[in-house]
Design a protein around this nucleic acid. Structure first.
Lengths: 212, 212
DNA sequence: CCAGAAACTTGACACTTGTCAAGAACGAAT
DNA sequence: ATTCGTTCTTGACAAGTGTCAAGTTTCTGG
């Protein structure tokens, strides 16, 4: 009997702990979200914890309550960013019923992303570069890169499928191509080049039929 | 006569000034070179002027004598980097007499670059990302990007030419493709992935005939 | 209601940062 | 040899950094 009570008490305690953990992680998520704002604005090199705190509803101490140090916070930010990013085009892929439809849906999302989420994407490129210096970032960054490659592959594969074909290149080459084009367009766009977005769209429109 | 003397004196003074300027710029170059060492080691975010000075034969004050501020120094570094980088494959392009020769020469240089100059190249990616945040870098970075695109185009054009063809893609797309592949391989290589270099070579070897 | 744990704030610490100014060392022209 | 401008060193400054510990508030189980 004592054992049963102990078992029940243990279960209750465990449940409570799980609940606390969830709350803890939820808060970590909120803090990461807030941090991403400032990181996207200033970049990794210029972002301090106090600046993050000031641009948020939190005080700088909280961040040390929830994260062991600055790297821990930024790793969490990277992971948080990933979740948002990796499924961006999935709806287009799922609903498009023709090559044209897929093309236009993809291009529209591409343009909207470049237009509205430039800050978050320059941060991604920043952090990916940081990973070349800071080993702590590498695991997460490489994993995100893989996810993005898979995302591009899903688009290309579906595009090819709708034309009764198979993609003509490897996932790695396709991702390199689109990522490279996007990165270059982003830089030009941020530099105030109004032609950056339409030129990217043209290029992608021309490219899609040749690679898939 | 007074005019002639004045003219001569002016010429002498001008020559002296040119000389001083050259000496000044030479020193700037040396300092930029030294700074590149530390920047390549630590990345933009973690590099301070004192650190640069400590890893060089100079004291930290000199840098403020030759550069108006930190950004000025790093801009100079970027320009200095460019000069080295942009002609890397030109000899191969100039001497290759067949597609195979060009391919092998290109791949060999590619592998050597990835192996021996990883630090300088991660710095390039770092600074290109910084340009997305810091307007002061943009002009130089975009210009280097253009030069690199042209460099890739020269290779592709020659490769096509040796096969009696024309490149099948735009310069922008070709550069995006190779740059993206290189960037990804660099990250994997730095993460200790021994397969990164051979896989890049395989991919490029496969790709060249399809894009040119 | 109350004790104790969790969540958060505040202020301080040791240290690093970019910048600058005062002056020392050096070189060249007189 | 002296003077003057260039080049470089040194030390200081204020501002900003990550980190942490002590204290306050808030929540919660008994």
């Amino acid at each position: 009997m004592a054992r049963q009570v102990t078992g029940a008490a243990r279960r209750v305690a465990d449940a409570a702990e799980v609940l606390r953990d969830e709350k803890f992680n939820a808060r970590r998520g909120e803090l990461a979200e807030a941090a991403l704002e400032t990181l996207g604005e200033l970049g990794f090199a210029r972002t301090s914890l106090r600046e993050i705190a000031q641009n948020s509803a939190f005080t700088h101490g909280v961040f040390h309550y929830y994260f062991s140090d600055k790297l821990d916070l930024i790793c969490c930010c990277v992971r948080h960013y990933k979740a948002k990013c990796v499924t961006r085009y999935d709806e287009v892929v799922a609903t498009a019923t023709s090559r044209d439809e897929l093309t236009e849906g993809f291009l529209a999302k591409l343009a909207a992303t470049l237009q509205n989420e430039a800050r978050m994407h320059r941060l991604w490129y920043d952090l990916r570069s940081q990973a070349m210096f800071e080993a702590a970032f590498r695991k997460d960054v490489i994993e995100i890169d893989k996810s993005l490659e898979a995302m591009i592959w899903r688009i290309a594969y579906r595009y090819a499928e709708l034309g009764g074909k198979r993609p003509a290149s490897s996932p790695a080459a396709l991702y390199a191509l689109f990522d490279g084009l996007f990165q270059s367009a982003l830089l030009k766009h941020l530099a105030g080049d109004k032609t950056a977005i339409p030129e990217l769209l043209d290029e992608v429109r021309r490219l899609l039929p040749t690679v898939c």
